[in-house]
Amino acid sequence: MITPPEMTHKPVMEIADDRHNESYMALVWRRLKRSLTGMIGLVLVVMLLVMSVFAPFFAPVDPKFTDTGFAAPDGIHFTDKDGNFTIRPRIYPLVEGVDLDPVTFQPLMGPDYENPVELGFFVKGFAYPVLGLFTLDRHFFGALDGRPVHFLGTDKFGRDVLSRIFYGSRVSLMIALTVVFFVTLIGTTVGMVSGYLGGAFDTWMQRFVELILAFPQLPLYLALTSLIPVTAPTNVFLAFVIVVLSGLGWAQLSREVRGKTLALARIDYVKAAQAIGAGDRRIVFQHIFPNVMSHVIVAVTLTIPNVVLLESFLGFLGFAVKPPLISWGLMLQDTSNYSVIGSYPWILAPVGFVLITVFAFNAMGDGLRDAIDPY
Protein backbone atom coordinates (compact mmCIF):
# COMPACT_ATOMS: atom_id res chain seq x y z
CA MET A 1 0.00 0.00 0.00
CA ILE A 2 1.42 3.32 -1.07
CA THR A 3 1.02 6.17 1.42
CA PRO A 4 0.22 9.53 -0.11
CA PRO A 5 2.89 12.19 0.24
CA GLU A 6 2.56 14.71 3.04
CA MET A 7 0.56 17.77 2.32
CA THR A 8 2.74 20.83 1.95
CA HIS A 9 -0.10 23.36 2.07
CA LYS A 10 -2.05 24.70 5.03
CA PRO A 11 -5.31 22.98 5.85
CA VAL A 12 -8.43 24.76 4.71
CA MET A 13 -9.50 25.53 8.29
CA GLU A 14 -6.18 27.25 9.09
CA ILE A 15 -6.47 29.45 5.98
CA ALA A 16 -9.99 30.39 6.98
CA ASP A 17 -8.81 31.24 10.50
CA ASP A 18 -6.03 33.48 9.13
CA ARG A 19 -8.48 35.37 6.96
CA HIS A 20 -10.96 35.61 9.81
CA ASN A 21 -8.37 37.34 12.00
CA GLU A 22 -8.01 40.19 9.49
CA SER A 23 -10.67 42.81 10.23
CA TYR A 24 -12.00 45.42 7.83
CA MET A 25 -9.74 48.09 9.28
CA ALA A 26 -6.77 45.75 8.92
CA LEU A 27 -7.60 45.28 5.24
CA VAL A 28 -7.90 49.05 4.78
CA TRP A 29 -4.55 49.59 6.51
CA ARG A 30 -2.90 46.94 4.35
CA ARG A 31 -4.16 48.62 1.18
CA LEU A 32 -3.22 52.07 2.44
CA LYS A 33 0.36 50.96 3.08
CA ARG A 34 0.69 50.07 -0.58
CA SER A 35 0.00 53.68 -1.58
CA LEU A 36 3.18 55.77 -1.42
CA THR A 37 1.41 59.11 -1.68
CA GLY A 38 -1.19 58.01 0.86
CA MET A 39 1.48 57.10 3.41
CA ILE A 40 3.38 60.34 2.77
CA GLY A 41 0.16 62.26 3.33
CA LEU A 42 -0.58 60.32 6.52
CA VAL A 43 2.90 61.02 7.93
CA LEU A 44 2.61 64.72 7.09
CA VAL A 45 -0.85 64.94 8.67
CA VAL A 46 0.43 63.35 11.88
CA MET A 47 3.38 65.75 11.91
CA LEU A 48 1.08 68.75 11.41
CA LEU A 49 -1.21 67.65 14.23
CA VAL A 50 1.73 67.07 16.58
CA MET A 51 3.16 70.46 15.59
CA SER A 52 -0.12 72.24 16.38
CA VAL A 53 -0.75 70.45 19.68
CA PHE A 54 2.80 71.01 20.96
CA ALA A 55 3.35 74.39 19.29
CA PRO A 56 5.03 76.02 22.33
CA PHE A 57 7.54 73.18 22.50
CA PHE A 58 8.52 73.54 18.83
CA ALA A 59 8.46 77.36 18.80
CA PRO A 60 12.03 78.64 19.34
CA VAL A 61 10.91 82.17 20.36
CA ASP A 62 7.93 83.61 22.19
CA PRO A 63 5.54 84.67 19.37
CA LYS A 64 4.78 87.93 21.23
CA PHE A 65 8.45 88.86 21.60
CA THR A 66 9.44 91.78 19.37
CA ASP A 67 12.88 92.28 17.87
CA THR A 68 14.18 94.03 14.77
CA GLY A 69 11.38 94.48 12.23
CA PHE A 70 11.75 92.52 8.97
CA ALA A 71 14.97 90.84 10.08
CA ALA A 72 16.31 88.29 7.59
CA PRO A 73 16.41 84.60 8.55
CA ASP A 74 19.43 83.52 10.56
CA GLY A 75 21.60 81.17 8.54
CA ILE A 76 22.74 77.93 10.16
CA HIS A 77 26.45 77.13 9.71
CA PHE A 78 28.52 74.04 10.36
CA THR A 79 31.88 75.79 9.99
CA ASP A 80 33.85 78.14 12.20
CA LYS A 81 35.37 81.45 11.15
CA ASP A 82 38.34 79.63 9.59
CA GLY A 83 36.12 77.30 7.53
CA ASN A 84 36.69 74.22 9.68
CA PHE A 85 33.81 71.79 10.13
CA THR A 86 32.00 71.87 13.50
CA ILE A 87 29.70 69.18 14.83
CA ARG A 88 27.42 71.60 16.64
CA PRO A 89 25.49 74.00 14.33
CA ARG A 90 25.84 77.70 14.97
CA ILE A 91 24.62 81.10 13.89
CA TYR A 92 26.74 84.17 13.37
CA PRO A 93 24.64 87.18 14.47
CA LEU A 94 24.70 90.31 12.34
CA VAL A 95 26.42 93.37 13.76
CA GLU A 96 27.19 96.81 12.41
CA GLY A 97 30.52 97.03 10.66
CA VAL A 98 32.85 99.95 10.06
CA ASP A 99 32.02 100.17 6.34
CA LEU A 100 29.22 102.46 5.16
CA ASP A 101 26.70 101.99 2.39
CA PRO A 102 27.74 104.29 -0.51
CA VAL A 103 24.10 105.31 -1.14
CA THR A 104 22.49 105.62 2.31
CA PHE A 105 25.73 106.08 4.31
CA GLN A 106 24.36 103.66 6.89
CA PRO A 107 26.67 101.14 8.59
CA LEU A 108 26.69 97.83 6.76
CA MET A 109 25.65 94.71 8.70
CA GLY A 110 27.96 91.72 8.74
CA PRO A 111 28.31 88.40 10.56
CA ASP A 112 30.05 88.42 13.93
CA TYR A 113 32.47 85.50 13.59
CA GLU A 114 33.97 86.15 17.03
CA ASN A 115 30.76 85.51 19.00
CA PRO A 116 28.81 82.66 17.39
CA VAL A 117 25.48 81.46 18.79
CA GLU A 118 25.59 77.68 19.19
CA LEU A 119 22.40 75.70 18.57
CA GLY A 120 21.11 72.50 20.10
CA PHE A 121 18.08 70.37 20.88
CA PHE A 122 15.90 70.58 24.01
CA VAL A 123 17.23 73.97 25.01
CA LYS A 124 15.86 76.38 27.60
CA GLY A 125 13.67 79.26 26.49
CA PHE A 126 10.45 81.02 27.38
CA ALA A 127 8.13 79.26 29.81
CA TYR A 128 4.77 77.93 28.63
CA PRO A 129 1.89 76.08 30.33
CA VAL A 130 1.22 72.41 29.62
CA LEU A 131 -2.46 71.46 29.81
CA GLY A 132 -2.89 74.12 32.50
CA LEU A 133 -1.18 71.86 35.04
CA PHE A 134 2.46 72.94 35.05
CA THR A 135 4.93 75.00 33.05
CA LEU A 136 7.98 74.02 31.03
CA ASP A 137 10.80 76.01 29.49
CA ARG A 138 12.30 73.37 27.20
CA HIS A 139 12.09 73.73 23.43
CA PHE A 140 12.85 71.35 20.61
CA PHE A 141 15.53 73.46 18.91
CA GLY A 142 17.14 76.79 19.60
CA ALA A 143 20.13 78.65 20.99
CA LEU A 144 21.98 77.07 23.90
CA ASP A 145 22.29 80.41 25.70
CA GLY A 146 18.56 81.18 25.34
CA ARG A 147 18.96 84.07 22.92
CA PRO A 148 16.16 84.50 20.31
CA VAL A 149 16.96 82.88 16.98
CA HIS A 150 14.87 83.65 13.91
CA PHE A 151 15.11 80.71 11.50
CA LEU A 152 12.52 82.24 9.14
CA GLY A 153 13.14 85.89 9.96
CA THR A 154 10.73 88.34 11.57
CA ASP A 155 7.66 90.29 10.44
CA LYS A 156 7.21 94.06 10.39
CA PHE A 157 6.79 94.15 14.18
CA GLY A 158 9.90 92.06 14.80
CA ARG A 159 7.99 88.90 15.80
CA ASP A 160 9.47 85.52 14.92
CA VAL A 161 7.79 84.11 11.80
CA LEU A 162 8.47 80.42 12.51
CA SER A 163 7.10 80.59 16.06
CA ARG A 164 3.98 82.37 14.84
CA ILE A 165 3.52 79.71 12.15
CA PHE A 166 3.57 77.01 14.82
CA TYR A 167 1.04 78.88 16.95
CA GLY A 168 -1.01 79.80 13.89
CA SER A 169 -1.38 76.13 12.96
CA ARG A 170 -3.44 75.69 16.11
CA VAL A 171 -6.10 78.19 15.03
CA SER A 172 -6.08 77.27 11.33
CA LEU A 173 -6.35 73.52 11.94
CA MET A 174 -8.80 74.01 14.79
CA ILE A 175 -11.10 76.00 12.53
CA ALA A 176 -10.76 73.40 9.76
CA LEU A 177 -11.40 70.40 12.03
CA THR A 178 -14.32 72.07 13.83
CA VAL A 179 -15.97 73.13 10.58
CA VAL A 180 -15.50 69.68 9.06
CA PHE A 181 -16.98 68.07 12.18
CA PHE A 182 -20.20 70.10 11.90
CA VAL A 183 -20.30 69.74 8.11
CA THR A 184 -19.96 65.96 8.43
CA LEU A 185 -22.51 65.69 11.23
CA ILE A 186 -25.17 67.79 9.51
CA GLY A 187 -24.50 66.69 5.94
CA THR A 188 -24.38 62.96 6.72
CA THR A 189 -27.51 63.01 8.90
CA VAL A 190 -29.60 65.08 6.50
CA GLY A 191 -28.42 63.09 3.48
CA MET A 192 -29.22 59.70 5.00
CA VAL A 193 -32.59 60.70 6.41
CA SER A 194 -33.64 62.47 3.22
CA GLY A 195 -32.56 59.62 0.95
CA TYR A 196 -34.14 56.93 3.13
CA LEU A 197 -37.49 58.56 3.86
CA GLY A 198 -38.03 59.98 0.37
CA GLY A 199 -41.39 61.39 -0.54
CA ALA A 200 -42.37 64.97 0.26
CA PHE A 201 -39.69 65.32 2.94
CA ASP A 202 -36.95 64.43 0.46
CA THR A 203 -38.40 66.78 -2.17
CA TRP A 204 -38.55 69.82 0.11
CA MET A 205 -35.20 69.05 1.71
CA GLN A 206 -33.46 68.82 -1.67
CA ARG A 207 -34.98 72.15 -2.73
CA PHE A 208 -33.48 73.67 0.43
CA VAL A 209 -30.10 72.05 -0.32
CA GLU A 210 -30.21 73.40 -3.87
CA LEU A 211 -30.97 76.86 -2.49
CA ILE A 212 -27.84 76.75 -0.35
CA LEU A 213 -25.73 75.42 -3.22
CA ALA A 214 -27.04 78.19 -5.50
CA PHE A 215 -25.54 80.95 -3.34
CA PRO A 216 -22.16 82.30 -4.50
CA GLN A 217 -20.19 81.24 -1.47
CA LEU A 218 -17.29 83.71 -1.41
CA PRO A 219 -19.43 86.91 -1.57
CA LEU A 220 -21.76 85.39 1.00
CA TYR A 221 -18.83 84.58 3.30
CA LEU A 222 -17.60 88.15 3.08
CA ALA A 223 -21.07 89.59 3.61
CA LEU A 224 -21.83 87.46 6.67
CA THR A 225 -18.46 87.90 8.35
CA SER A 226 -18.62 91.67 7.82
CA LEU A 227 -21.75 91.79 9.99
CA ILE A 228 -19.64 91.36 13.13
CA PRO A 229 -18.57 94.68 14.66
CA VAL A 230 -14.86 95.29 14.86
CA THR A 231 -15.07 95.68 18.63
CA ALA A 232 -16.56 92.21 19.13
CA PRO A 233 -14.57 89.78 21.31
CA THR A 234 -12.19 87.46 19.52
CA ASN A 235 -14.05 84.33 20.63
CA VAL A 236 -17.34 85.68 19.24
CA PHE A 237 -15.70 86.50 15.92
CA LEU A 238 -14.10 83.05 15.71
CA ALA A 239 -17.34 81.27 16.61
CA PHE A 240 -19.25 83.24 13.99
CA VAL A 241 -16.72 82.30 11.30
CA ILE A 242 -17.06 78.62 12.23
CA VAL A 243 -20.87 78.85 12.13
CA VAL A 244 -20.82 80.57 8.73
CA LEU A 245 -18.41 78.07 7.17
CA SER A 246 -20.31 75.13 8.63
CA GLY A 247 -23.74 76.45 7.65
CA LEU A 248 -22.73 76.87 4.01
CA GLY A 249 -20.55 73.77 3.65
CA TRP A 250 -22.79 70.83 4.57
CA ALA A 251 -25.06 70.92 1.51
CA GLN A 252 -22.65 69.28 -0.96
CA LEU A 253 -21.87 66.37 1.38
CA SER A 254 -25.58 65.96 2.04
CA ARG A 255 -26.27 65.58 -1.66
CA GLU A 256 -23.51 62.96 -2.03
CA VAL A 257 -24.67 60.93 0.98
CA ARG A 258 -28.27 61.06 -0.26
CA GLY A 259 -27.20 59.51 -3.56
CA LYS A 260 -25.48 56.67 -1.70
CA THR A 261 -28.50 56.17 0.55
CA LEU A 262 -30.93 55.94 -2.38
CA ALA A 263 -28.98 52.96 -3.68
CA LEU A 264 -28.53 51.31 -0.25
CA ALA A 265 -32.21 51.63 0.67
CA ARG A 266 -33.09 49.06 -2.04
CA ILE A 267 -30.60 46.40 -0.92
CA ASP A 268 -31.93 43.11 0.43
CA TYR A 269 -30.70 43.44 4.03
CA VAL A 270 -32.49 46.79 4.37
CA LYS A 271 -35.69 45.23 3.01
CA ALA A 272 -35.23 42.34 5.44
CA ALA A 273 -34.81 44.76 8.38
CA GLN A 274 -38.01 46.53 7.36
CA ALA A 275 -39.82 43.20 7.06
CA ILE A 276 -38.98 42.14 10.63
CA GLY A 277 -40.22 45.49 11.97
CA ALA A 278 -36.99 47.44 12.55
CA GLY A 279 -37.53 51.17 13.07
CA ASP A 280 -36.37 53.81 10.62
CA ARG A 281 -33.82 55.19 13.09
CA ARG A 282 -32.25 51.76 13.58
CA ILE A 283 -32.10 51.08 9.84
CA VAL A 284 -30.58 54.47 9.04
CA PHE A 285 -27.89 54.51 11.72
CA GLN A 286 -27.09 50.79 12.03
CA HIS A 287 -27.49 49.51 8.48
CA ILE A 288 -27.05 52.44 6.10
CA PHE A 289 -24.58 54.60 8.05
CA PRO A 290 -21.77 51.96 8.18
CA ASN A 291 -21.98 51.59 4.41
CA VAL A 292 -21.74 55.33 3.67
CA MET A 293 -18.99 55.82 6.27
CA SER A 294 -16.23 55.04 3.77
CA HIS A 295 -17.40 57.84 1.48
CA VAL A 296 -17.75 60.22 4.43
CA ILE A 297 -14.19 59.53 5.62
CA VAL A 298 -12.78 60.32 2.20
CA ALA A 299 -14.96 63.43 1.92
CA VAL A 300 -13.67 64.64 5.30
CA THR A 301 -10.02 64.29 4.30
CA LEU A 302 -10.70 66.20 1.09
CA THR A 303 -12.79 68.92 2.79
CA ILE A 304 -10.21 69.85 5.44
CA PRO A 305 -7.70 71.36 2.93
CA ASN A 306 -10.52 73.33 1.29
CA VAL A 307 -11.42 74.87 4.65
CA VAL A 308 -7.74 75.62 5.36
CA LEU A 309 -7.46 77.41 2.02
CA LEU A 310 -10.70 79.31 2.60
CA GLU A 311 -9.63 80.38 6.10
CA SER A 312 -6.27 81.53 4.78
CA PHE A 313 -7.96 83.55 2.05
CA LEU A 314 -10.47 85.13 4.43
CA GLY A 315 -7.69 85.83 6.93
CA PHE A 316 -5.67 87.50 4.19
CA LEU A 317 -8.64 89.77 3.50
CA GLY A 318 -9.12 90.42 7.22
CA PHE A 319 -12.44 88.55 7.56
CA ALA A 320 -11.29 85.57 9.66
CA VAL A 321 -9.56 85.72 13.02
CA LYS A 322 -8.42 88.92 14.67
CA PRO A 323 -5.38 89.67 16.84
CA PRO A 324 -4.23 88.61 19.39
CA LEU A 325 -5.05 85.23 17.83
CA ILE A 326 -2.61 83.96 15.22
CA SER A 327 -3.52 82.11 12.04
CA TRP A 328 -1.79 81.48 8.73
CA GLY A 329 -4.26 83.70 6.91
CA LEU A 330 -3.75 86.55 9.36
CA MET A 331 0.03 86.30 8.93
CA LEU A 332 -0.37 86.64 5.16
CA GLN A 333 -1.84 90.13 5.51
CA ASP A 334 1.74 91.45 5.42
CA THR A 335 2.11 90.10 1.87
CA SER A 336 -0.51 92.42 0.35
CA ASN A 337 2.19 94.78 -0.91
CA TYR A 338 4.40 93.70 -3.82
CA SER A 339 7.27 95.88 -2.64
CA VAL A 340 7.22 94.18 0.76
CA ILE A 341 7.31 90.72 -0.85
CA GLY A 342 10.21 91.74 -3.06
CA SER A 343 12.22 93.14 -0.17
CA TYR A 344 11.27 90.61 2.51
CA PRO A 345 10.32 87.34 0.77
CA TRP A 346 10.54 85.27 3.97
CA ILE A 347 7.13 86.57 5.11
CA LEU A 348 5.65 84.19 2.51
CA ALA A 349 6.66 81.24 4.71
CA PRO A 350 3.04 80.57 5.86
CA VAL A 351 2.16 79.85 2.23
CA GLY A 352 4.52 76.88 2.30
CA PHE A 353 2.81 75.42 5.35
CA VAL A 354 -0.62 75.94 3.75
CA LEU A 355 0.55 74.09 0.64
CA ILE A 356 2.00 71.26 2.75
CA THR A 357 -1.28 70.94 4.66
CA VAL A 358 -3.35 70.87 1.46
CA PHE A 359 -1.07 68.28 -0.12
CA ALA A 360 -0.99 66.13 3.03
CA PHE A 361 -4.76 65.85 3.43
CA ASN A 362 -5.38 65.44 -0.30
CA ALA A 363 -2.74 62.71 -0.58
CA MET A 364 -4.11 60.91 2.48
CA GLY A 365 -7.65 61.25 1.10
CA ASP A 366 -6.64 59.75 -2.24
CA GLY A 367 -4.94 56.85 -0.47
CA LEU A 368 -7.96 56.25 1.75
CA ARG A 369 -10.30 56.38 -1.23
CA ASP A 370 -8.41 53.56 -2.92
CA ALA A 371 -8.03 51.59 0.33
CA ILE A 372 -11.68 51.82 1.40
CA ASP A 373 -13.18 51.15 -2.04
CA PRO A 374 -14.34 47.50 -1.94
CA TYR A 375 -14.16 47.24 -5.73
Rank of each mutant, 00 (worst) to 15 (best):
Q274F: 09
Q274H: 13
A275H: 08
A275T: 14
G277V: 04
G277D: 07
A278M: 13
A278R: 15
G279H: 12
G279F: 04
D280Q: 13
I283N: 01
V284L: 08
V284C: 05
F285W: 13
Q286R: 15
I288H: 12
P290Y: 02
N291A: 07
N291T: 00
N291H: 12
V292N: 06
V292A: 04
M293R: 15
S294V: 01
H295F: 11
V296Q: 08
I297D: 04
I297V: 14
I297W: 03
V298Q: 02
V298N: 02
V298A: 03
A299W: 00
A299C: 02
V300M: 12
T301N: 13
L302N: 05
T303Q: 14
T303N: 14
T303E: 12
I304W: 07
I304D: 04
I304L: 09
P305Q: 07
P305H: 03
N306D: 12
N306K: 14
N306L: 14
V307W: 01
V308N: 11
V308Q: 06
L310H: 10
E311S: 06
E311M: 08
S312F: 02
S312G: 13
F313A: 15
G315Q: 01
L317G: 03
G318S: 05
G318W: 00
G318K: 00
G318D: 02
F319E: 04
A320Q: 07
V321S: 10
K322G: 01
K322C: 02
K322L: 03
P324R: 08
L325N: 13
L325F: 11
L325A: 12
L325M: 12
